[in-house]
Design a protein around this nucleic acid. Structure first.
Lengths: 205, 205
DNA sequence: CCTTTATTCAACAATGTGTTGATTATTTAT
DNA sequence: ATAAATAATCAACACATTGTTGAATAAAGG
């Protein structure tokens, strides 16, 4: 008698139209400059209909972002801990990283809208937190013992996650020219050997 | 006869009132939710007066950000190239990094408004570009030869600058508990030895 | 003191918001 | 195929914010 939320084709159609219009409008004029009226005009739906699904454009953005985070979490969950560390990591990229980049590439317009120049800083922060929580949860950095730390754990995590996100943003901005494999390898080299080592600078001693 | 732009005390007073009100409002409700009316009410000035100085709240934000970037550029300019690389870097932080953190700490409410959770992603991007342009200009990474690169130059720069910014944001969010010296040292260790090395994980071979 | 000019004030049209109730159209299930 | 359910449309509404105006007032600098 009761049916799933949002299996009604009208609902699916409307939400898709809204989200598609939203993504294209963010690209064109940026999130700030965009109104609910803009979205519904572009989506060819009544303005009132928008409010049947979202409370405002911020709510729309958050729902889109929540979907992305869920998908990325799924990818991370499948990865195991970093227990088989060897120098292969500098030649063959981690499968989980490759999948990550494949997802980003396959959803490039969407990712561009939320992570690009006209994106959302709150999402960036939420994404970092979600990634941190997940990689810590699955014990990805299990080999990391507190007594061995040269720097506080929190700063290490912030450093490496922000670095990855920065590279991802540049990759998206430049049109995803490198393959997911190449990108995963680049990040491995930078993280495992150190950015300055990877840049060819060597420390004496 | 003509005098400097903005030496008139009324102008200085008004702009200061606007910027102070703006910073406190960003902290309270975020940039998005804040109106020109909010700002002028908080600043105790007529709404029309706001428009004598800024075209809208975005213009205000940009002018504030431009000032910050100029100040940070000044700090970088004073630093020399990375030509005296030795292991001291892991014990004594780079003076330029210490100055950087001192500026951030001394302007914490302002920096929080533009870099914090309710901040501006466009500023982040502009800041990264400005830093990149400056450190490249002064030859900070002069020892970095293209033939030695294990990864594309652009990704190396994006990686390391984003990493630094991420650590800075965390530091600001947590209330600047560590001293500028400590922070500079943490970043040196992470960058020169590599984040994973600094975290105590060692690669076999 | 006097000139300059920044600020104030009230008013304006324009645009967007979020909500309403009645109507129409579409979907789902029988 | 048809009926019941419900999503989408439409017009209208009060409300808030915007950006601009011209005239009056206040404060600064020389």
């Amino acid at each position: 008698m009761t049916q799933d939320l949002a299996t009604d084709r009208r609902i699916l159609r409307t939400r898709l139209a809204i989200q598609t219009a939203f993504v294209s409008l963010v690209k064109e004029k940026g999130f700030d400059a965009l109104s609910v009226t803009d979205i519904t005009t572009r989506a060819n739906i009544n303005r009132g209909t928008f409010y049947l699904h979202y409370t405002d454009k911020y709510d729309l953005l958050e729902q889109i972002e929540a979907g992305i985070i869920q998908n990325l979490q799924g990818i991370i969950q499948q990865a195991g801990a970093l227990d088989a560390l060897d120098s292969n990591i500098l030649v063959e990229p981690l499968p989980v990283m490759v999948e990550f980049f494949e997802y980003l590439r396959d959803n490039a317009p969407l990712m561009h809208a939320v992570l690009g120049l006209r994106g959302d800083i709150a999402f960036q922060t939420r994404l970092k937190r979600a990634i941190e929580a997940n990689i810590v949860n699955i014990g990805f950095f299990a080999p990391m013992k507190d007594e061995n730390l040269l720097v506080p754990r929190e700063y290490f995590l912030s450093y490496i996650i922000s670095a990855h996100l920065g590279v991802i943003q540049l990759w998206l901005q430049s049109g995803c020219r490198e393959s997911p494999q190449e990108m995963a390898l680049i990040l491995s080299r930078l993280s495992f050997k150190g950015p300055l080592y990877a840049s060819g600078i060597s420390l004496e001693n």
